[in-house]
Design a protein around this nucleic acid. Structure first.
Length: 271
DNA sequence: ATAATCACCTGCTCGC
DNA sequence: TGCGAGCAGGTGATTA
């Protein structure tokens, strides 16, 4: 479910309930996520005031004195704020119980998500340490993509989905940004010109910013942390539209797999 | 170092 | 209606 806009939407949705709250208890019903939830995490979080909730790439970071818990939604994860009376579902793996009567509940049917801990500076965590820049920051631009892609033979789509180059570009928005930039996803990363990368970087920023504004893309039953659905789906130009007419030229959109991920593009508009 | 493939897990849709 | 096949928003690990 979650790409960067969905994670950011979740962060914004749950933030008001976490701000200023103290953690009463962390309840782990299912510790077997992508990596095991650290056994001592409940003890580390108990009675700790929440100092902030931030996002880095698709990780949500809930900071307390001494460190931060690191949450990832994987493919099917979601978070929402519930109250004590809420029934516990089959895939409701973790509760963060707060002193203000609210509970942050983590749900993840496929269990590709994770919940980890890093003492001290969270950015030193192995999973965060070598991440590329945030797509919406000034540190990320077309020049960076151009420089890093020289001599690279991977398809440009795989290249922009590589966290070392830029974080937060998942399958939906990679497809969308490449369409908007008029670049064929199969093109060799190393053969794309500087101006075309500048255009691509701009389109990545635009599509992600717009998706965040609209509360993310609602696929399946995704809802943000505040329970509201995302509205970006109606803006999608290619994702999920294989075999249908291109919204630009009416020719049939092609679907093929790149790096095990379904890719949709227009042979006419993207070259 | 780079590129390609595998793996983790459940649920849903599709074709027979 | 039942059943196996294939697919799904991610990404680290493993293999050449």
């Amino acid at each position: 479910m979650p790409e960067l806009p969905e994670v950011e939407t979740t962060r914004r949705g749950v933030s008001p309930y976490l701000q200023g709250a103290t953690i009463l208890e962390l309840v782990v019903r299912q510790p077997s996520l992508r990596w095991p939830v650290p056994e001592d995490l409940p003890k580390l979080l108990k009675d700790k005031p929440i100092l902030g909730i931030e996002r880095r790439a698709k990780y949500l970071l809930i900071k307390v004195e001494g460190g931060a818990s690191i949450w990832h939604l994987g493919m099917s994860g979601s978070m929402r704020v519930v109250d004590k009376a809420a029934a516990i579902g089959k895939h409701d793996h973790v509760d963060l119980v707060l002193d203000n009567g609210h509970i942050l509940r983590f749900t993840d049917p496929r269990r590709f998500g994770s919940l980890l801990w890093q003492a001290g500076d969270v950015n030193t965590h192995k999973l965060l340490a070598s991440l590329g820049p945030e797509p919406l920051s000034d540190e990320f631009d077309g020049e960076r993509l151009y420089q890093r892609s020289r001599k690279r033979k991977v398809p440009v789509k795989s290249f922009i989905m590589d966290n070392a180059n830029v974080v937060g570009v998942g399958n939906i928005y990679a497809n969308e940004a490449l369409f908007k930039a008029g670049i064929r996803p199969t093109a060799e990363a190393g053969k794309i010109s500087r101006p075309r990368y500048q255009r691509l970087a701009e389109e990545i920023k635009i599509v992600l910013a717009k998706a965040i504004e609209q509360g993310g893309t609602t696929l399946k039953d995704f809802v943000g942390g505040d329970g509201k659905p995302g509205y970006f789906k109606q803006e999608l130009m290619v994702y999920g539209r294989g075999g249908q007419p291109c919204l630009g030229c009416k020719k049939t959109l092609v679907e093929q797999r790149i790096g095990q991920r379904t890719t949709v593009f227009c042979r006419h508009c993207q070259r």
